[in-house]
């Protein structure tokens, strides 16, 4: 099986969907002639032409809203945000228009749009470019939120997102774009809402999404090597829909929970999951749920400090030991 990067996996997903469905169109800043600010769309303009791969001006409210309107009429736009942080200038178009149009029309209209781009810290670009808005996006009924952590998932989930008839926020990570894994050449789809057990274990459940999962896997190896602890690592893969069943099954198995994520702690995905666990599996818990998140301040620029602000394998390791004490 070929080993490809997360970046290539995203590109292959779009390439295949562009070929399959003439209504799929890629729009965004620098996606065409420039070959993509992060080279995700490299080569797609040459292959699919300027009607399908469209360079937009720096005008997120305008072009995202335009994408929503075109989706109402049956196109399947895949909109790239160079940094997902730029969603804030298009908030009304995403969360008032895309999220609500089906509801407010009593189900007469649907909006099959994908809005994708990197949403992460760790690249020393400061607070304005380092937003992790998965909880903000998932807060809105009508919206789906997907956060792949591997190349394999990036491809299978993006293909499903493009075929989905509801608006999907697809959050990537620049720190993962160069990461590789085996990805089959034959077509596959991964359904949204299906978590993945990345490592089986019996002593503690480490649950999260995105790049934090890669860190959690490192922590799990450290826990095994240093303390002979068998940690189970669950990658949620999508936030809404959420695989509650997988979360609860793991909690019932290990009875101890550590939640990890790169976002800030207040009103975050992990806060929601802690709430769900205490509602539905309280009796299975042998210890309080703990969380490892980003430190609760705007993303700091200073490169060594930004590393410390974000989750690290060491922080996850330490927190797991507290849960297990």
């Amino acid at each position: 099986m070929p080993v490809i990067t997360y970046r290539e996996a995203l590109r292959h997903a779009m390439d295949e969907e562009l070929t399959r469905d003439p209504n799929v169109v890629i729009l965004g800043e620098e996606v065409g002639q420039f070959q993509g600010a992060y080279k995700i769309t490299e080569g797609l303009l040459a292959k699919h032409g300027p009607k399908r791969i469209v360079d937009t001006p720096i005008s997120e409210a305008g072009f995202l809203g335009m994408g929503v309107g075109s989706a109402m009429l049956g196109l399947r736009p895949v909109m790239e945000l160079m940094f997902f942080s730029f969603y804030s200038v298009a908030f009304d178009q995403i969360f008032n228009n895309a999220a609500n149009i089906r509801y407010m029309s009593g189900g007469l209209i649907n909006c099959p749009i994908v809005i994708r781009g990197p949403a992460n810290g760790g690249t020393n670009v400061g607070a304005t470019h380092s937003h992790t808005p998965e909880s903000i996006a998932a807060y809105h009924p009508g919206i789906k939120v997907v956060v792949p952590s591997t190349a394999y998932d990036a491809k299978g989930l993006l293909k499903s997102a493009i075929r989905d008839n509801d608006p999907v926020i697809f959050l990537e990570n620049t720190m993962l774009y160069g990461e590789s894994c085996e990805v089959p050449t034959e077509e596959y789809l991964i359904p949204l809402g299906q978590a993945k057990v990345m490592r089986e274990g019996t002593d503690i459940s480490i649950i999260g999404h995105g790049r934090s999962i890669q860190m959690a896997l490192k922590s799990a190896i450290m826990l095994k090597e240093k303390h002979n602890i068998n940690a189970e690592v669950i990658d949620l893969r999508s936030i809404r829909p959420l695989d509650e069943a997988a979360i609860l099954a793991s909690v019932r198995k290990t009875n101890r929970v550590l939640l990890v994520e790169e976002a800030k702690p207040f009103c975050s995905v992990s806060a929601m999951i802690a709430c769900i666990i205490q509602e539905k599996a309280f009796d299975y818990l042998d210890a309080p749920i703990r969380r490892v998140t980003s430190m609760d301040a705007p993303a700091i620029y200073s490169p060594p400090l930004e590393k410390e602000q974000l989750p690290t394998p060491q922080k996850i390791f330490d927190a797991a030991l507290v849960v297990l004490k």
Partner: peptide, 8 residues
């Protein structure tokens, strides 16, 4: 096509 919970 999707699985999992959409409402909370």
């Amino acid at each position: 096509k999707s699985v999992g919970n959409l409402f909370f």
